[in-house]
Write a protein that binds this DNA or RNA. Sequence first.
DNA 1: ATCCCGAGGG
DNA 2: CCCTCTGGAT
Length: 218
Amino acid sequence: MNRILAETYPDAHCELDFRNPLELLVATILSAQCTDKRVNMVTPTLFAKYPAVEDYAAADRSEMEEIIRSTGFFRAKTNSIIGMAQAVCERFGGEVPAKLKDLVTLPGVGRKTANVVLGNAFGVPGLTVDTHFQRLVRRFGWTEETDPVKIEHVVAELLPRREWTIFSHRVIWHGRRICHARRPACGVCPLAALCPAYGTGPTSPEQAAKLVRPGPFS
DNA sequence: ATCCCGAGGG
DNA sequence: CCCTCTGGAT
């Protein structure tokens, strides 16, 4: 399963734009229930206006809400970003912490967001169990669990630690392109022969081909 | 379990 | 109209 995904998505990587851990943390908070593409449309303006943690911590709420409005949940996300920044300044000396235990104490930062930052900004292997990941590993038949933490532990047992971050990206890319929540493109899926959920979506190649969403390296 | 919330696809 | 998009806090 992992081998085929690796061959299909040799260039899988984090698609959020960022230049440092703080920017990735902010971008990941914004990515909740929103496409990465949409996040990348607002972060250039956001990062220019708030270059440092101190700038977020002192930000005007309505000004920030205006910038991130199109990502949805904009009031909650503004509170999370400002609260996160204040906590980083007060409790971590202005540096984004590089430990899961510390990251999840920040407002608006859960286990999934923390693992994204660890894996992509700090080089610490982590499984990012998001909505795609949950759906896919269950369709693969790897687990029946619905609790993200349990799913994370099950998958951690099945893969070498060094594969955790890249595997998460491959799964997410596959979920975006082919294995959609609604009508997965089973007819053109490279995992079809191995997948217990084959048939969830259209199995004819012609029908399925119409459902494929082109990715950056399609 | 429910709320937060906008944008795009079917 | 409905559902879904790299969730987290209450």
